[in-house]
Computed example of a mutant assay.
Amino acid sequence: MREFAYKSRDGDVYVLINVNYGDALEKITENYTGCAVFVSRSIVDRVHTKCPLIPVIDGEEGKSIEAVLSIVRSAHELSIDRDGLFIGVGGGSVLDVVGFSASIYLRGVDYVNVPTTMLSMVDASLGGKTGVNALGLKNVIGVIRQPRYVIIDLTFLESLPMPNYIDGFAEVIKYGITMDRELLGQVMSNTDKLLGRDYGVLEEVIYRSLRDKASIVEVDELDRGNARAVLNYGHTVGHAIESVSNFSISHGRAVALGMICEARIGVKLGYTPRYVPDLLMDVLSRFNLDNRVAIDVNGLVNAMVRDKKRSGEFIKLPVVIDVGMWDMVKVRIRDLMNLVIGECGSMP
């Protein structure tokens, strides 16, 4: 078991890794007047707590305003008051919607994240970014509000299909390539154990990933400075890939392709060493995350123009300046579009 806490504007957030979720929730809920567990409908039979269970739609289909209203309605019917607790159990889409719903219900109630996929364990469960999709754009409606607890129970990974499991390693590799050389080395040295879901190695890799993310969130919680931008490495292009594919390309694979594209762009801009794209290809291929896909480049460009990170005629883009090191650059939209067309029309 590993645990740590990080600071937020609403108080400390407690992160528990490799624990039994049921035992942890039993202790946590004692401090609240009521609770409701909003759980992915695909795993509802596996979840057992004293709190009422409400199945919710998982995947991008469930990230909608309609899903939020359904959660709010259920909480109201259960008479959850302002001292009550929302608990999200599922993948990143479920945690996003439950966190957003908790943030607006009665002007905000506490919530707990219990991620059940590798991707949500290393990314969506921590950081406080919550939201839903609309207008064909990912997370275009949302708020930043931190969970009170993040509970990582590795047993949820045992039955996770391999394609879904390896999706999460795109985010782990992102942390490694941008700000944690040692983590990247651990991933490359323990690929077989990680693919075999070795609890000991997984605990350490998840712990380091979440500590890396928490260190950024603490200094730029509201995403108003430059620090939190590193967490978007691969996502400017990755989110656009998801949108133009109508979300048929998974988040992890889209981010993997996005990192390759953005690394090539970094080289062209003169910031990223030439060996970095090849290194990324190497480590991503170990997890079968380097699949070649057909991408509508014009659609990709149009989606990027509407990116949330755009500011006037520029987009702030994190670039790798060496393994484990990054910097922020402002790129003119027009120039970025030309670079995407030139470097990312055929990936990888």
Score class of each variant (00 low, 15 high):
207 Y>W: 13
177 I>T: 09
142 G>H: 01
183 L>W: 12
235 H>W: 00
250 S>G: 08
141 I>W: 02
194 L>T: 08
240 A>Y: 04
83 D>P: 01
135 L>V: 11
343 E>F: 07
286 R>A: 12
170 A>K: 04
123 D>S: 10
29 T>P: 01
121 M>P: 05
57 I>P: 00
173 I>D: 13
177 I>W: 10
241 I>P: 00
162 M>R: 14
69 L>S: 11
313 E>D: 15
112 V>L: 13
192 D>P: 03
324 G>V: 03
210 L>H: 08
338 N>M: 12
74 S>K: 15
129 K>C: 03
248 S>F: 02
226 N>D: 13
228 R>Q: 04
150 V>H: 07
248 S>P: 00
278 D>H: 15
49 T>L: 05
122 V>C: 03
92 G>S: 10
288 N>H: 13
260 I>F: 11
285 S>P: 07
7 K>N: 13
132 V>C: 02
206 I>C: 01
136 G>N: 04
260 I>E: 09
251 H>C: 01
196 G>W: 05
23 D>P: 01
54 I>V: 13
318 P>C: 09
51 C>Q: 00
234 G>S: 01
172 V>I: 15
146 Q>K: 06
308 K>N: 03
267 V>N: 12
289 L>D: 06
193 K>I: 03
158 E>Y: 12
286 R>G: 08
110 D>M: 06
333 I>D: 07
325 M>Y: 14
173 I>A: 09
41 R>F: 10
70 S>F: 04
133 N>R: 07
66 E>V: 08
19 V>A: 08
168 G>P: 01
25 L>P: 00
114 V>H: 06
254 A>I: 02
227 A>L: 11
281 M>C: 14
6 Y>G: 02
283 V>F: 14
284 L>E: 10
340 V>S: 01
97 V>W: 01
306 R>W: 06
229 A>M: 15
217 V>A: 03
215 S>K: 09
